[in-house]
């Protein structure tokens, strides 16, 4: 098989996968009194995590508890609750865990800070790497090489 064919087959498979994932969400009918509520329902149900099947949001999950939470979400939206109130209701019962975007507190601080930390670490590494390369191309000695020379010079001749 040529390389081109392999790429072709892989991309076809990828398209298939992408197409099927769109149809994965649970089908349920709720009669919303306004389109705005419906839009918020979809947003929130994708942002709330199913406590039972932990890598699905409640929109995708078939677990009974996810269905219960969808019903609660629908009822609270219709009753006029704000997004914050609904999230607070869920968090009071299932903890910050239930949100895919948990609030910043002591427990989640590291989680929120890690992208920034990794970026800084990566940038520091890159800068170091490029400096060393520049020094080498300029014919400059690295600190290690300088040390080595000094040590050799200091050594008494045998």
């Amino acid at each position: 098989m040529s390389r081109f064919e392999t790429v072709l087959i892989l991309s076809a498979l990828w398209c298939l996968l992408a197409a099927s994932s769109g149809a994965r969400a649970v089908v349920e009918t709720y009669e919303f009194s306004s389109q705005d509520l419906e839009a918020r329902y979809h947003l929130l149900s994708q942002e709330l995590r199913c406590p039972k099947c932990q890598n699905q949001n409640i929109a995708d999950s078939n677990a009974p508890i996810a269905r219960d939470l969808r019903v609660v979400l629908f009822e609270q939206l219709e009753a006029g609750a704000t997004d914050d109130e609904i999230l607070a209701f869920m968090v009071a019962r299932y903890g910050e865990f239930v949100r895919y975007r948990p609030g910043v507190d002591r427990q989640t601080l590291l989680l929120w800070a890690s992208p920034g930390l990794l970026l800084v670490l990566g940038a520091a590494g890159l800068i170091r790497h490029f400096r060393q390369r520049r020094d080498r191309t300029l014919g400059l000695l690295t600190d290690a090489e300088q040390d080595q020379i000094e040590q050799l010079l200091r050594e008494p001749r045998a």
């Binding site: 406590p51 039972k52 009974p64 508890i65 219960d68 939470l69 019962r93 299932y94």
Partner: peptide, 12 residues
């Protein structure tokens, strides 16, 4: 209905 369970944070 599972409402007490929900208030308690039961998930199974």
């Amino acid at each position: 209905e599972g409402s007490v369970g929900l208030d308690l944070g039961v998930y199974g």
